[in-house]
Amino acid sequence: MSKIKSLDELKKIREQSKGGTDIRVTGENPDRVVLAVGMATCGIAAGARVTMSTLLDEIDKAGLDNVSVVATGCLGFCYAEPLVEVRTPGREPIRYANVDAARAKEIIDKHVKQGILLDNAIIGKEVPRQ
């Protein structure tokens, strides 16, 4: 560890080490958007790991502090894996099919950041959760 010589350097270290705790800080935010990736056998076989790591990387790059990525079980549409469900508080969840790295990037860029749905990839609106 080298010495920190100024407040700016301290702030730089804060930004660098944020990656270590931000999923905890975001997890405490009740208004966060949750991206649930289907990580059952079918999802993983279809490449859900790539989907998940792309989502995490893109969130990191964009510096979004209100988005969590969680793994979820089989969503039932095994033919359309990898699946990503976007859960925004107060809105109906949206499910996207065949989310490869490119589509994962698009979900972050369009849906999460701008609120524009990817109409060509939605597989069905779910009934609101209880």
Binding site: L7, L10, K11, I13, R14, S17, K18, G20, T21, D22, V25
Partner: peptide, 10 residues
């Protein structure tokens, strides 16, 4: 670093 990440020592 965990403490610094939540604005520690600022």
């Amino acid at each position: 670093d965990d403490y610094i990440s939540v604005s520690g020592y600022e």
